[in-house]
Amino acid sequence: MTPMVKAEGVHKSYGAAHILKGIDLEVNNGEVFCLIGPSGSGKSTFLRCINHLEKINSGRLYVDGELVGYRQKGDKLYELKDSEVALQRRDIGMVFQRFNLFPHMTALGNVMEAPIQVKGESKAVARERAERLLARVGLADKAGNYPSQLSGGQQQRVAIARALAMEPKLMLFDEPTSALDPELVGDVLDVMRDLAESGMTMVVVTHEMGFAREVGDSLVFMDGGVVVESGHPRDVLTNPQHDRTKAFLSKVL
């Protein structure tokens, strides 16, 4: 079976700053894949490379067997057109640290927007699904509210519903709970746990070690743009092999 995400020697730099220094990893279908590490270790950058929000400088990145952002013919690479990149992104949902909900649309409008604009779905169909998704994240009664009228946790749950509305085969979470008040974190994690149980493939950049241990199937510890250690979350978190991992975990656990 082709892995959902496959990275081969992925490098990324901004000018002189070398952020990713050769990432190799595989995310299997239906897996919850957690990325942890100190800030600046490149985990968010790597996540953003997966849906081509960032262009990689070398290596190969595949999602569901398909090269991200490029087409390979023989040994030549062709950059994909914007519209082709957009087509690839349809199937990859992304949840941001800062929610990035559309503030001029209601919660329902946020969830309906992409299916209508991108897939050309009818309003009725999109609304029906949006209502179902909002109910699923526990916000059926907030459908008519604007993002500014919602708490951070509620906004993030709307953002998850918005990503799910495109019926993605892969969900990317970029520190989804880092901008939340501690008491609101639980609601968002519950939604993510529910999503994991439904079999969604998820790549999660997180500082929530509890979530990684309970829900994660694989875990990677990154530092300085490389994968330092990987394995099952329980093994890595309770019995880290690498000194760098031990030092990091001793600070966050």
Partner: peptide
């Protein structure tokens, strides 16, 4: 900037 990113991540085109 996050608004553009969110919109692109949903597969919306530049003009949309």
């Amino acid at each position: 900037e996050g608004q553009t990113e969110a919109s692109h991540a949903l597969g919306m085109s530049q003009s949309k």
